[in-house]
């Protein structure tokens, strides 16, 4: 493990909250879509085996930040990135093979998006294309168990994944991500399309997973951030520039209990008390 970067020196909002080893970090990260800037000068260090929540008003660039970590922004025409992102000490913001990176940094999306294949192949496909050398049946079972879905689907592994309920589908997507054995799991509002009971199950699952994985979750739901995360980063929109366009910035990054009980930044306070939304 290489030395974790210490971004705290550069940005007052990003005090490293604890002395956990940092697994993912952004240093002065800026993102542009064409001419418009979506994120400015984000510096954040995400510790290992913790759940980090990204909150903030709509359009502040939470998902954009999340998608920088596994380079999904590369797929958007005209997206550019400035600054630096490191993963395990390696720079991943430059010229790297994003395909190799994405196996190690998995992603779960807002809407459950299982493949139109059966449950078994939904889980096995990622492992297969990444050249997994172990026992596939065993991997599928382990991943489904880990995603707390095994008992519900073990008798219908060859039924289409799309036949499952919404909450089951989302856990299938999590199992699919676990099957490629990533180190980090990025979750982009994973519960926003789910009912409260399914949401609770996914949240329990996240708590369970954090022993082995680092989780970064984007959420609109402040209660959820409070319930599940160890650390919370609150993003904000800055004041409009001369072109009237507003850019996302990092307002505050602290342990969740501190951020919600004693926010340092007035904008964060305004947001979590519901005055900005």
């Amino acid at each position: 493990m290489s030395t974790p970067v210490d971004p705290g020196q550069r940005h007052p909002a990003a005090q490293p909250p604890e002395l956990d080893p940092v697994v993912l970090s952004a240093l002065g990260l800026s993102v542009w879509y064409g001419q418009t800037q979506a994120l400015r000068d984000i510096t954040i260090a995400i510790p290992r085996n913790k759940i980090t929540a990204l909150i903030g008003p709509s359009g502040c660039g939470k998902s954009t930040l999340l998608r920088c970590f596994n380079r999904m922004n590369d797929l958007i025409q005209g997206a550019r990135m400035g600054g630096e992102i490191r993963f395990d000490g390696d720079v991943i913001s430059g010229d790297i093979d994003a395909v190799v990176l994405r196996r190690r940094i998995g992603m779960v999306f807002q809407k459950p998006n299982p493949f139109p294949k059966n449950i078994y192949n939904n889980v096995a496909w990622g492992a297969r294309i990444n050249g997994y050398r172990g026992d596939m049946d065993e991997l599928v079972e382990r991943s489904l168990r880990r995603a707390a879905l095994w008992d519900e689907v073990k008798n219908k592994l060859h039924r289409p994944g799309l036949d499952l309920s919404g909450g089951q589908q989302q856990r299938l997507c999590i199992a699919r991500t676990l099957a490629v054995e990533p180190e980090v799991i990025l979750m982009d509002e994973p519960c926003s399309a789910l009912d409260p009971i399914s949401t609770a199950r996914v949240e329990d699952l996240m708590d369970d997973l954090k022993n082995d994985y680092t989780i970064v979750i984007v959420t609109h739901n402040m209660q959820q951030a409070r319930r599940v995360s160890d650390l919370t980063a609150c993003l904000m929109l800055d004041d409009a520039g001369q072109d009237g366009h507003r850019t996302g910035i990092l307002a505050e990054f602290s342990p969740t209990d501190i951020l919600f009980t004693n926010p340092k930044d007035p904008r964060t306070e305004a947001y979590i008390t519901g005055r900005i939304g």
Binding site: V99, F109, N113, V180
Partner: peptide, 10 residues
């Protein structure tokens, strides 16, 4: 979403 799911798995 289907394309993203595949790419996110590497």
């Amino acid at each position: 979403s289907l394309r993203q799911a595949a790419l996110a798995l590497g």
